[in-house]
């Protein structure tokens, strides 16, 4: 067992599950979507990205790319939320935007997990 692999796998999968937890729920209201969960998702995503830094292999580069995509979408969602909140513009449109952005991030995280698992399966040890 490789402790490094455990750590990386833990954060990559946690990033996806948290992302999913935030995304799951009604599309036009924020009742089912906790801001704390979004915060946690962003933090875990950032850690997952850091863990993928500096890997020169082909899979490593694609993994890093998917993580960066997820980061950008989640941070954009959080920024939109903040801006909308302080401008009293929380309406179905902005809510939809926030949630769909996190949905996009979820897709990226999903791809990342699949890549990670397939890479793990490919190794013979």
């Amino acid at each position: 067992m490789n402790l490094e692999k455990v750590r990386a796998g833990f954060f990559i999968i946690l990033a996806m599950t948290l992302n999913f937890g935030f995304f799951y729920g009604e599309m036009d209201s924020l009742i089912h979507h906790s801001k704390y969960e979004l915060f946690a998702a962003i933090v875990v995503n950032l850690i997952a990205t850091t863990l993928k830094l500096g890997d020169k292999t082909q899979t490593g580069s694609v993994l890093l790319a998917t993580s960066l995509v997820a980061d950008i979408q989640l941070i954009t969602a959080a920024t939109i939320w903040t801006v909308a909140y302080y401008n009293n513009a929380i309406n179905p449109e902005s809510i939809g935007l926030i949630i769909s952005l996190s949905g996009g991030a979820l897709m990226a995280n999903f791809v990342s997990v699949i890549l990670y698992i397939s890479d793990a399966l490919k190794s013979k040890r």
Partner: peptide, 20 residues
């Protein structure tokens, strides 16, 4: 660039954890 990124992993994680 990869050399830098690889060595910067720990500092980045420390920074993210501290912020969080």
């Amino acid at each position: 660039l990869f050399l830098i990124l690889q060595k910067m992993r720990t500092p980045f994680i420390v920074l993210i954890s501290v912020y969080t």
